[in-house]
């Protein structure tokens, strides 16, 4: 009964993960991260429904709050990087290495 939701959640998560790993544009990577978070939210809500309690829904709210905060900081960083380097590619920002 809830299988479809979970499959959808897994698909969305997989699409998000592949996006994070393969795309270079920081905005797109960021959107894919959001996609993964929301796939998780969907799974939480589905399980809450399945078990008949509110724990999953509660967690989903927490995730949304954290995601909102993350968007604020993340976008700010991306804008700063773009301003200084004239590029939004995550591969260009690879100075911190061995």
């Amino acid at each position: 009964m809830t299988t479809h939701y979970l499959v959808l959640s897994a698909l969305l998560f997989a699409i998000g993960a592949i996006g994070v790993l393969t795309r270079r544009n920081a905005i797109v990577v960021f959107m894919c991260v959001e996609l993964m978070l929301n796939a998780c939210n969907l799974a939480f809500v589905t399980f809450a429904r399945q078990h008949g309690n509110l724990d999953g829904q509660l967690i989903a709210f927490f995730v949304m709050v954290v995601a909102a905060a993350e968007v604020v900081i993340g976008l700010a960083i991306i804008v700063m990087i773009f301003r200084t380097r004239r590029s939004a590619s995550v591969d260009d920002a690879s100075l911190l290495k061995y």
């Binding site: 790993l21 990577v29 995550v90 591969d91 920002a93 061995y98």
Partner: peptide, 17 residues
């Protein structure tokens, strides 16, 4: 072992995954 620290966010993400 140091070579693992490439500086690419993608490779870190992959190792996290």
């Amino acid at each position: 072992l140091r070579r693992v620290q490439t500086g690419y966010v993608r490779s870190y993400a992959l190792s996290i995954l």
